[in-house]
């Protein structure tokens, strides 16, 4: 009796019609701005060394993230945190692991003058781009004011808003349009049963809240490497003691395809990451079968975007 009461209170009505995960839908965008943004997204002139573009670290053909724990910026400098996926980033409550950017447009401005990323200045970047008359003309047709930090950011942000992975098998299943494998369904059940769903919910399966890394146990102590400033997470933004080691909960839509996990890129396998999460966030240990089921569920969350066809 008591047990059922607790279920009702804390897990919520699992059997109810309304699911905690919602199917993805596209967001309204301006096609012309999207096109300009895409051009800029792949443009290496954005970096001082002319060898790094947005797409260098956000590899759209695979998962929108980087295939390394720390991304390489201009002059081969390594970033402080792992580059998260750019896919579905529009649904994040804040951008970046610590949520320092309130939205995509703000986020876009960050790498330009970051010495570990593009390592340039806006003035320089704009001057460089203005030399390309054809681009300048095309750009000015859309943005009257011409090339500026605001217009460039806006264009890229517009492009990023279009990067939504649609028609994931799970979404289709949710909408009753397709069937889902028993294993994936079992994974989804376990996902909810163990409480993963508490943080990873909503259409992006996460991304809409902040949570402390290591609810049970000492993740950073157990990690075996020294704590770096970036490990403080949201504390770097708010400065509140209680926000230390708190990070934006990442959306899991593209998690099944990723090669590196967590803000520090310390984990390289999906099941390992699931296991770490169960241990430090839920204080639980899962069987191999359970890990495989949850991995299958996560795989079913991966939708499609045309950039993946490139």
């Amino acid at each position: 009796m008591l047990r059922s009461l607790i279920w009702v209170l804390f897990v919520g009505s699992a059997g109810a019609a309304a699911e905690p995960i919602l199917p993805l839908q596209s967001v309204a965008t301006d096609a012309r701005k999207v096109a300009l943004g895409r051009q800029l997204f792949f443009d290496t002139r954005l970096s001082r060394t002319n060898d790094i573009s947005c797409a260098s670290c956000h590899q759209l053909s695979s998962h929108g993230a980087d295939n390394s724990a720390r991304s390489k910026g201009a002059f081969g400098r390594l970033g402080e945190v792992r580059a998260p996926t750019v896919y579905n980033s529009v649904f994040n409550i804040r951008q970046a692991w610590d949520g320092k950017a309130i939205d995509l447009k703000t986020q876009v401005t960050l790498p330009v003058e970051n010495p570990k990323e593009f390592a340039t200045t806006w003035a320089e970047l704009i001057a460089t781009l203005n030399q390309d008359q054809a681009f300048k003309t095309a750009f000015t047709q859309v943005y009257r004011e011409g090339l500026s930090s605001d217009s460039i950011s806006d264009a890229i942000a517009h492009y990023e808003r279009s990067l939504i992975t649609l028609n994931a098998p799970f979404d289709l299943w949710l909408q009753g349009k397709a069937t889902l494998s028993e294993q994936a369904q079992e994974g989804y059940r376990l996902f909810k049963y163990y409480g993963c769903i508490n943080c990873h919910q909503g259409k992006n399966v996460g991304g809409n809240m902040f949570a402390k890394m290591g609810t049970f146990g000492d993740y950073f102590g157990d990690r075996g490497t020294a704590i770096e400033p970036s490990d403080y997470g949201r504390y770097n933004v708010t400065g509140r003691e209680e926000d230390k080691f708190t990070f934006k909960v990442p959306g899991l839509r593209m998690a099944a395809r990723q090669t590196y996990f967590f803000h520090d890129g310390s984990e390289q396998s999906l099941t390992g990451a699931i296991n770490t999460m169960a241990r430090y966030q839920l204080g639980r240990s899962l069987s191999e079968a359970e890990l495989a089921a949850i991995a299958a569920f996560l795989e079913s969350l991966v939708g499609h975007h045309q950039e993946m066809d490139q």
Binding site: R3, F10, G195, N198, F210, A211, T246, L282, G283, R284
Partner: peptide, 23 residues
């Protein structure tokens, strides 16, 4: 509200396993 979210989730994470342990 953000803090409440984070903390409520933390509390829920703690509570989730307790009924099973009790059982």
């Amino acid at each position: 509200m953000e803090q409440l979210k984070t903390r409520a989730v933390g509390m829920r994470n703690g509570l989730t396993y307790l009924p099973l342990v009790l059982d």
